[in-house]
Every structure is written in structure tokens, then in C-alpha cells.
Amino acid sequence: MTRPTPPHPYDFLPALPELKVVSDDVRHGDPLSEAQLASGGNVSPALTWEPGPEGTASYAVTCFDPDAPTPGGVWHWVLADIPPHVHGLPAGGEPGAGRELLNDLGSLGFAGAAPPPGDREHRYIFAVHALGVAELPVDERTPAALVGFHLTVNSLARGTITGLARTAEQSR
């Protein structure tokens, strides 16, 4: 597929203080490991982040693919209502650390990277959102785009780290 590269989606949202986000599993700008691919382990990466600003009542972690061949990209992971004392997640998540919400692939939890055949390399943007509310006003049936709206209006700070994935034929 030949098409332009979409801009970074967070560039169009209100400016926020930046949270430092690090990972042993995702190196910013490098290919994702086999574990984070849908065809591999399909495991969410380990992430750690600095504490949010004063007033942080919870965190949310998301993974968004702006390069998916859709008008609005694809949400691969939405984890909300992470308690304010939690500043990291191990690979595969941590039971009870937050509430898994619906991703755009129709499931709860992390859906690994899977650019479609014939497409170019995709960016997978892992974001940590420091929120001013303890719980988002959503449930497990809420579409990820609407959760994204609630993240935007409740965020006090945000940090991102971006991994890349290629199609199976590009990886050969």
C-alpha cells in the first residue's frame, strides 16, 4: 500500500508536561521484539514511568498504531485506573494493576503488533497518561476512541515510547 505517513497523534492534543517512560522491552525507534508481535508472544512490554504531577489520581497505559490503514489508526491496548502508587508494569501486565478496556481488535488486554501484508512498517506508540481522576467513566464495552477522549480531557501529564513493526514479508 502506498500512502502518506500519518503524523504523531499526540502532536494534535493539548500540550502536557512530559512523563519519562522507559522499557527494557521497547527501545524508542527500534523494532519491537518477537514477544510484542501478534505472531509471536503477544505479550505487553514491561514499562516504568516517573511519578505524575501533584493531583495524579491514577494512570492509564495505551498502545496506539497511527499507521494502520484506517482513518483513525488502531488502539492495541487500553489499561486504565492504575493506582497512583504504581509506576510500572512487568511484561504481560500485572493482575489487578488497573482495568483492561476494549481494544480496537475487539478484545480486552494487549493485542500484539500486526501490520497487514503489503503495508509499510508501523509505529506502535506506548503512552502512559497521568490522570486527575481515580477512575475513568467508562466500562469494558466502551470503544477505545471514546476512552481516548476521556484520557485527553483528564490527563495531567503524558509520556510515550515508540516501537516499530514490519509485516511478515518485510521481516524475511
Rank of each mutant, 00 (worst) to 15 (best):
V61T: 04
A80F: 04
V74S: 03
C63A: 13
F64D: 01
Y59F: 14
W77A: 02
V78W: 09
I82W: 11
V61C: 09
A80L: 05
G73C: 11
A80P: 00
W77M: 13
W75M: 13
P69E: 12
S58F: 09
H76L: 13
E54H: 11
H76M: 07
C63R: 01
V61E: 08
G55H: 04
A57K: 14
P66W: 07
A57I: 00
P83H: 13
L79E: 08
D65V: 15
H85D: 15
V61R: 12
C63W: 03
C63P: 02
P66F: 04
P71I: 02
A68Y: 10
D65P: 04
H76N: 13
L79C: 07
D65E: 14
L79P: 02
C63G: 04
T70M: 10
G72H: 12
A57C: 03
A68F: 05
G73Y: 00
V61Y: 10
D67V: 12
A57G: 03
E54K: 14
P84M: 09
W75R: 03
G72P: 00
T62D: 06
D65H: 02
A60D: 04
S58V: 04
I82K: 14
G55F: 09
G72T: 13
D65W: 01
V74F: 01
G55A: 08
Y59V: 01
Y59A: 06
I82E: 07
V61S: 07
E54N: 05
H85S: 12
P66D: 08
D67I: 09
D65R: 06
S58A: 15
E54A: 14
D65K: 08
G73Q: 13
T70H: 12
A57L: 11
Y59Q: 05
